[in-house]
Design a protein around this nucleic acid. Structure first.
Lengths: 174, 174
DNA sequence: CGGTAGCGGTTGCGTTCCGCAACCACTATA
DNA sequence: TATAGTGGTTGCGGAACGCAACCGCTACCG
């Protein structure tokens, strides 16, 4: 891909400015989906397989992901590189804006709300854990549940809450 | 536009996830280009007039920009709304990533570098000034040059420096 | 040895979007 | 009346997207 300008914002947009790349990274980072089939089946937005295949190739070529060496018919593990891990602030900024200015599902919004409440240091904590997961970095000693663990707990709790609402809210529901 | 999911990240991507929207906002915010012709002629990446027209309509419809009431043949002033002003952290995150992981022009990179060095409070300062420019908010009392002023000064200095380099650096240049 | 499920994709095809250039109606100025 | 400037619009070819079906390969189980 040829660069249209030397502006760093443009450089990022040329690579990530489409309807799917950031969502794939979101699912890798937050959903821990690291196999083709997992990304395909787990996609909330319903990505098509050819689009997913294309994006994975591009992200690998751009050095954002690496693909584990896997022969045909075998599972290929995708991992984040350091530059991939550092796309997290972009994802956060997008989600933070979307939380304020666009409508959305309460359960899915709770994750973003949790991150906002947790403050900016939480992002660093998440990135540290990604380095452990994806780069084989030694895990940092911690007391209590990890950052992703807390995030998922908040999401699960919210899902539970809204699910309960929808059940009790429609008594003879159909 | 119909939403593909209730995820706040997806909500932002659906609106801003294309090759031009963020660049238009960048030029409005950092370049203070608020007229169609200024955005068209000043575009470093060379946006086409039909694409620009389309994006302006979409951004206005999304409530990110407002269009001043102007008859045909008269200048229409585009202004940021509060939600438009708050896309600045997204622009910053994109540029910050691009600065680290993508090649680019030194002069254009200096602006992003300056913002990084200035720290996160600088973003708030910029957003305050945008509220003055675009929303008619009362200017905050300040000592010394404003945030945009400092930013442009850094950019101009770097442009001067690299221009000097290219002259003195290639003595009998060809 | 044969059938089946799972793996990462690929292919075809129609629709939408992007990129380029020319062109438009209108206003303000002289 | 002529000219420059305003915000666009139109036409067209190529690229990207979205959908569904299909593919070759491996691993497992009987």
């Amino acid at each position: 891909m040829q660069q249209r300008s030397g502006c760093p914002i443009n450089a990022a947009v040329e690579l990530l400015g489409d309807r799917w790349s950031m969502l794939v990274l979101r699912d890798v980072i937050f959903g821990d989906r690291r196999y083709f089939r997992a990304l395909l089946a787990g996609s909330v937005e319903g990505i098509a397989s050819n689009i997913l295949a294309d994006r994975l190739v591009r992200l690998v070529e751009a050095g954002i992901l690496t693909r584990g060496t896997a022969a045909r018919g075998q599972r290929a593990l995708y991992s984040l590189t350091e530059s991939g891990i550092q796309t997290l602030p972009i994802l956060y900024a997008l989600g933070d804006w979307g939380l304020d200015w666009r409508p959305g599902d309460d359960a899915l919004r709770s994750r973003q709300q949790f991150m906002r409440d947790a403050g900016p240091a939480f992002l660093d904590e998440l990135m540290d854990e990604l380095r452990v997961r994806h780069l084989g970095a030694p895990p940092k000693p911690r007391h209590g549940p990890g950052a992703f663990e807390r995030l998922e707990a908040a999401y699960a709790a919210e899902r539970e809450r809204t699910a309960g609402e929808s059940v009790t809210g429609t008594p003879a529901g159909r």
